[in-house]
């Protein structure tokens, strides 16, 4: 047994340890990485830029804290862009663990918009958070009929009819589009129910893992834009000119990817050496 064969039989715990070490080191040391912008991200940015102040946007925060690290940068950059432009934002959170987190994000963004642009964002006039109801598919269908059906009141149990910005806002017909940021399969409900049944323009921000699977919907026009994972968020941050966590995270990605590729190569070299000798791995 030579060096490479022994390497290819390496205990998985070494893989874990080396990976963890690379992540920690790259998190702690700073250096720059270049970023490319894809058209499917740009189309979301352009859509947001085209909206007139006072238009309504439905922002669906359907991820839960598990994918917070990956999804929060998108929520932050898009919601900051919307509120800074004076768009009115209707927010929902259709993941059972999500509402607490979404509320926290909303409050933080309201503060940061005020800090950066001096613009006071008023809850109930510029933004409303409807909260969570179980069974996302059903809620999405119901909102297409009337927001009041699944959400008689907002997250704080204020009746929708007594919230100023919801006056005359019945259902998806009254919003310019839905920007969905999600890490769950709820995106299928949005596509087949909200876009499919009610024809509302839909753009999605997905976890990196999911994004690849929604290109068919992009091509068939069921969604008009797509952001995938941290890379998508970094692209958006670059477009919006608000460098944030996503752009920082890219340098970690580059190095960890190289480590994993290295492991794959080691595994294959060991495999070929032992196969040439007639051994088995």
């Amino acid at each position: 047994m030579n060096f490479f064969e022994r390497l290819s039989l390496l205990d998985r715990r070494w893989v874990y340890l080396i990976l963890a070490a690379v992540v920690v080191i790259t998190v702690l040391i700073e250096f720059d990485t270049p970023i490319r912008v894809n058209p499917e991200v740009r189309s979301i940015y352009d859509f947001m830029e085209e909206q007139q102040p006072g238009s309504y946007i439905h922002l669906a925060i359907d991820y839960d804290p598990g994918s917070l690290a990956e999804m929060h940068p998108m929520t932050y950059v898009i919601m900051e862009q919307a509120l800074a432009k004076g768009l009115k934002v209707i927010m929902t959170a259709l993941s059972p663990n999500g509402p607490g987190m979404a509320e926290q994000a909303m409050l933080e963004i309201m503060d940061s918009v005020k800090l950066h642009t001096g613009k006071e964002v008023i809850y109930g006039e510029d933004i409303v958070f409807l909260g969570y109801k179980p069974y996302p598919g059903i809620v999405i269908l119901a909102m297409g009929q009337n927001y009041r059906l699944p959400f008689p009141g907002d997250y704080y149990n204020t009746s929708l009819d007594s919230i100023p910005m919801m006056e005359g806002i019945i259902n998806y017909d009254n919003v310019e589009g839905v920007i969905l940021i999600t890490g769950t399969s709820g995106v299928d409900f949005w596509i087949s129910y909200a876009n499919g049944r009610y024809n509302v323009p839909l753009a999605v921000g997905l976890t990196g893992v999911m994004a690849a699977d929604y290109y068919p919907y992009l091509k068939s026009g069921q969604i008009f834009g797509l952001m995938g994972g941290m890379l998508g968020a970094a692209e958006y941050e670059k477009l919006a000119g608000r460098p944030g966590r996503a752009m920082e995270a890219m340098r970690v990605q580059v190095w960890t990817h190289m480590v994993i590729i290295l492991f794959i190569l080691i595994g294959n070299i060991g495999y070929f050496i032992s196969r040439r000798r007639g051994g088995s791995v």
């Binding site: 390496l10 998985r12 893989v15 874990y16 990976l19 963890a20 992540v23 839960d64 804290p65 598990g66 994918s67 917070l68 690290a69 663990n97 987190m101 960890t256 480590v259 994993i260 492991f263 794959i264 080691i266 595994g267 294959n268 495999y271 070929f272 791995v281």
Partner: peptide
């Protein structure tokens, strides 16, 4: 709940590496 949830999810980073190391062989 949040830390447990996020940490459980983050285990995937390690598992994706070990799965790649174990299974990606040009058999």
């Amino acid at each position: 709940m949040i830390p447990l949830h996020a940490t459980m999810f983050s285990l995937l980073a390690f598992f994706i590496a070990s799965a790649a190391f174990r299974a990606f062989k040009a058999r």
